[in-house]
Structures are given as C-alpha cells and as structure tokens.
C-alpha cells in the first residue's frame, strides 16, 4: 500500500491536494461509488452514535434536541453522580472479577485441550473429539442460559448431582456467591473447543523434523512437549492473550442479563448490564450514556496500552 501511495504522490507532486483528489476521484469514481453505501453505513451506525454521546453531558429527554438551542448541558454531572454512587464500585468490581476469572480459568483451557488432542495417536478419534467439543459454540446464548437455569434450580440435574457430594439443595442462580463460578464454567464449557482450533492450527505447523531430531537425541515425550511443542505455539498464545487483556473491562451484557436477577446483582451486575438497565429499562438515557462512554474510553485506553506494551516486548502488535 505504501508503495502505490508513493507512486501517486510522485506523479502528482506538483499538484495541489485538491487537484490530486479530484483527479483520483474522477479516475476511480467506480470504486468510490462501491464504497459509498459502506461509508454511509459506518457514518450512520457507528459515527452518529459517537456523536450521540453528547447526551452524556446533558439532561436529555426525547422531547429535547441534542444539539443547538434547547439542549440542556450539565457538564460532568452524570459522571460525577456515577463515580459517587454505590453502583460505581459494584459494577467495576464485578466486571473485573468476572473478566479476570474468565481469563485465569478460561484462557489455559483451550491451550491444554489442543495439546491433548494433538497427542491422540488415532487421528480418526481425534477428528470425532474435535467435532464434539466444537459443538457447544453454536448453541445460542438463550439456549445456553435456559439450560443453565433448568439445570441449577433446586431440583435441577446439576444441583441434584452436587447434593450427593454434600452441596445444599438450592436454586444456585439465587446465590450471589455462585454467580461467577456458573458464568465462568459455562463459558469454558461453551468455548473451550472452539478456542482450541487456533492452537491446533499452530500445532500442525510445527516442523515434524524437530521431533525426529529430538527423538534421536533421546528426548522423551515430556521433554519434546516442553522444548519443541510449547515454544512453537508461544507466539499464538501471546497474541491471544494480548487480545484478551485488551477486553478486560468489556464483559458483554447478553449472558449477564439472561442469568442474573435482583438477588445476585451484588456479584453479577457489570458495567454493560448496568447501562442496559439504566438506559433501556429505567429510561435514564443521559446517565446510562455517561456510564457507557466512561467504559468505552477506558477500554480504548487499555487496548492502546496493551498494544504499546506488546509492541515493545515483541513484534506481535495488533496495530
């Protein structure tokens, strides 16, 4: 891309920007026409909402305009009221807890699974295992959460089985202490197989001659895994880890909304579900937008920092 850009630049060195732009658009008008609906789409559904965040600094009502005369500006009122509220620590703490728990338990699982599948000698069996472990990924969130709801009720199958081991018979979704475990375990159940694909792909790329050489040198299976297999998939692991840490403060609202209830808000309510409830159920759009904007800005900063760090540490930067 940079080469072709240079070509354009040198050809039009003597022309003004406008003249070059006009010539470029005339020459490539067809491509720009193809891109026109796309640009309009992004402007309307991505950039207009960014503009709409101005209501975070207003007392906006459906009857008031967002811009110009009649807009009621209130500065950082909603932000301050959020930071001072009891909800601020609660949703921030829950978002971080859920996110980090998912990362700690959920991140190593697919790596381990890929290593184990890779060790299966019978390749036909390995194929069948793969097909089965990918399956839960395709189940809808509603069905997943519906199954969870049915299984962990006081007479649900999971509750009944756990009661054999001394667990109290209870509706587990009504117990605030159990929300995070339920969220994380079901996440792993649904995602571990799908997550392993990328590592399996990296594993098939490992040069088989390395193993042969190691075998001649008398290295056992364990040493081969430690010194050949794992170093070969480390770059993939790092990239995946970077992408995950960038999302440390973005826990999606969909699964939360389907699983939580008033008795578990204390441990289950995250930033996105709070925004949803405030903005769309309680109709306090300005306040909810302020909370959402706070989250967007923090997320952006985190991704930027993570990317910067990974860029300095290795060549594996996202941008």
């Amino acid at each position: 891309m940079s080469g072709s850009k240079k070509a354009t630049a040198s050809a039009g060195r003597n022309m003004s920007f406008t003249a070059r732009a006009v010539r470029d658009i005339k020459k490539n008008y067809e491509i720009y026409l193809i891109l026109l609906p796309v640009v309009i789409f992004y402007l309307i559904f991505h950039y207009a909402p960014m503009g709409g965040t101005v209501i975070a600094f207003q007392d906006w009502r459906a009857s008031r305009p967002m811009f110009g005369e009649g807009a009621r500006w209130v500065g950082f009122k909603h932000f301050i009221s959020f930071f001072n509220s009891y909800y601020f620590t609660r949703v921030l703490r829950n978002t971080v807890t859920i996110s980090i728990s998912t990362l700690i338990w959920g991140f190593p699982a697919p790596v381990l699974l890929a290593l184990l599948i890779n060790e299966l000698k019978n390749k036909y069996y390995a194929r069948v295992v793969q097909i089965i472990v990918y399956l839960p990924h395709f189940i809808s969130m509603v069905v997943l959460c519906g199954m969870i709801t049915l299984f962990v009720r006081d007479n649900g199958v999971v509750t009944q089985v756990l009661s054999l081991f001394g667990f109290p018979k209870q509706n587990m979704l009504q117990n605030p202490d159990l929300f995070v475990p339920i969220y994380v375990i079901s996440n792993i159940w649904q995602g571990v197989g799908w997550g392993s694909i990328i590592y399996l792909a990296a594993l098939t790329g490992v040069d088989q001659q390395l193993y042969e050489a190691a075998e001649i040198d008398g290295a056992g299976k364990w040493k081969q895994t430690l010194h050949i297999t794992i170093p070969c998939i480390i770059p993939t692991i790092i990239i995946q880890f970077i992408m995950r840490t960038g999302q440390i403060l973005s826990v999606g609202q969909e699964k939360i909304i389907l699983l939580y209830n008033e008795t578990t808000y204390e441990t289950a309510d995250v930033i996105s579900s709070f925004v949803y409830r405030k903005g769309l159920i309680e109709n306090d759009q300005s306040y909810a937008t302020a909370v959402g904007l706070f989250n967007s800005v923090i997320n952006f900063v985190i991704v930027a920092i993570v990317n910067k760090i990974s860029g300095t540490l290795s060549e594996t930067s996202l941008w």
């Binding site: 850009k5 470029d24 925004v275 769309l280 909810a288 989250n295 991704v303």
Partner: peptide, 27 residues
C-alpha cells in the same frame, strides 16, 4: 487510491471505540 487508507482507518477505528449501547439505540 488516495482515500482507501483514510476510509480503512475510519472503519477499523470502530473496532476499538464505539458510541455505546444507548446512543446506538437512539440512532
């Protein structure tokens, strides 16, 4: 093309920053 890079940046930026749930809903 002169402007594909600008358009690409504009599009990729939306992967990292969004107006959020409520403004999108209002739009």
């Amino acid at each position: 093309l002169m402007f594909t890079r600008v358009i690409t940046i504009m599009i990729v930026f939306t992967m990292y920053f969004s107006g959020g749930m409520i403004p999108t809903y209002l739009v």
